[in-house]
Nucleic acid binder design. Sequence first.
DNA 1: AAGCTAGCCAACCGCGCGGAT
DNA 2: TATCCGCGCGGTTGGCTAGCT
Length: 289
Amino acid sequence: MDVVLQSRSSNSMAAEPEEETELRRGPWTVDEDLTLINYIADHGEGRWNALARAAGLRRTGKSCRLRWLNYLRPDVKRGNFTADEQLLILDLHSRWGNRWSKIAQHLPGRTDNEIKNYWRTRVQKHAKQLNCDVGSATFKDAMRYLWMPRLVERIHAAAGDPTIGDTSCASGVRSMATTAATATTYPENNSAASAVTTSRSASSGSFTSELCGEEKNLHVHGSGEKTTSGGDWMQEADQEFWAMHMQIQPEDGGLFHVDHELSGWVQGFSDVGVSADNLWSLEDIWKMQ
DNA sequence: AAGCTAGCCAACCGCGCGGAT
DNA sequence: TATCCGCGCGGTTGGCTAGCT
């Protein structure tokens, strides 16, 4: 399955001018990758259509740009999302919705495509399991009161658990906690989340490439590349969710009724001065913990 | 062992925006 | 002002892989 080449059709041996108009599609070959990398190293990126032509790549500029940004760029971080990254994604998505590129700006090394895939494959799957829509109150409640606190819990546990081997991981989480608690401003919303990411990126690698406690949930692909198994913590949270809220009636459109335990959560938020408006703030979740 | 299914992810597509001409 | 072009964004698709039957 080396390459799927729609362009390599019967007339691929056509005259040169004809050939120039033929564009390759599908997976990139190693040669193409090297060509693109070398060209950008020499001439820089931008003007993608012209770049594609000048580099001799029979790809659209769009395709080149995508390949570079999502895969070849040296600072692209590969592998599974860390707990804090997941937390950040949940938080930022709750603010901005499907603004993937905007969200990606706050996760150094992560691409919008990667985040989008994460959301669609992992998060939406759980919405499905809860028999609700991602826009429903049920889903938002599960996210707000269970998934996000669960993630924070995990990060805290990793930070304070001496059995966690990776001390850099724990210290990284600790620094994140500190940063989150003392964070200053968000570009738009005056929230803590962006400060979390930005400051962490300064010392990136300290823990972002490892999963800390999440490591258990991983399996290894043939290439050695790690991928998350889908986040068992979410499954657990889902179960808790249903155990706690048996009165939910999914067929009524996912309307969620706050019960006593949830009221406790909400009370907890108000105790630390969190209003309904900023229930989503990462900083607030940390305070709650 | 073979077939099926679900999950994951790279890549493509359509659309809209903004700058240049 | 109108048109073109480059670019970025969000949504969608298709192929590969692992796990299950």
